[in-house]
Amino acid sequence: MFSGREVEWDASNRIWSWEKNIVYKGKCKDTGEDVAVKQIPYDSSKGKFEGIHPNLIREVTILRRLSPHQYIVQFHNTFCVNDNKRPLWNIVFEYLSCTLKQLIKQKLDPSNVKRLIYQILSGVAHCHSHSVIHRNLNSESILFEENSRRIKIAGFGLSRSCSIPFGVEEKFLKSYSPGVEAADISYQPPEFLLLSENYSLSSDMWSVGCIFAEMARGDVLFEANSCSVSQLSEIFSVLGTPTEADWAGVTSYIGWEEELEALDYNFTSKDLTLEALKAKVPALDVDGMDLLSQMLTYNPSERITAKKALDHAYFKNLDKTEL
């Protein structure tokens, strides 16, 4: 654990920023260990101070629940400093220089794809067993540690706790603000894009599917579009337009528009859908394709869970002692 006094950082050494949140590369004064320091200033639109920022409370309490774990970014501490008479909160994490996206750019061979997706699924299963939905899994919120050759899930700023018990019908699911706007649109599941307010852990699995495909093909699976409707049509052009038979209630979501109905990418059989997906991800073998298609299932309640995915035939020849 570090206290505020033991960490120093240079304001010019920014590694990430989003809106007013900034991550700096810093150092622990005593040990010289590199750390990442995330600052979340309180943004009070009314000019009135209203306590600690909700995002900070969510992120820190979630990290306290999940960390330490071999596939979750190590959380060190949170502390408050005085910034022009206003409190400024900081979260201290371990520092990792490489994102999964950078790693994908260097091209991954099939055995590494298998190893990494297994690690990602283990990390996601850990989150899910602690009733945390990540909500923003993408190739930049997953970091890579070069020494241990392990991935670490980070970026819990948008995460929430999910409905308990697991595996209940949609009407029992907690509601959240629809379509997480801040999350990367390329990885958003169709229910986010359709502005569903009731979703659960299965939404993360869609994103994991997108990451899996991205690792295998070396590029983003669904290129980011400017709005949710064009993002949906991008997905439909690969996987077909979902019907009520595939996903009961799909056409009654508020985000469902006539435009989408008219698209009619009509893949009449499941085999044809698999063909279209296979064309996008030619490097995956039969088992890999089967796992991917179970992650990219339209109906959230039919999507494979992280725990089940770990037992999938695709991993049967993976040496689990070397993870």
């Binding site: 101070f49 306590g51 600690i52 820190v60 309490t61 306290r64 949170t78 408050c80 409190p87």
Partner: peptide, 18 residues
């Protein structure tokens, strides 16, 4: 800013475990 102080106190006392 007593709300901020109180929130910090409670969260630190609970070690940020809710």
């Amino acid at each position: 800013m007593s709300l901020h102080k109180m929130e910090s106190e409670v969260l630190e006392k609970l070690d940020w475990e809710l």
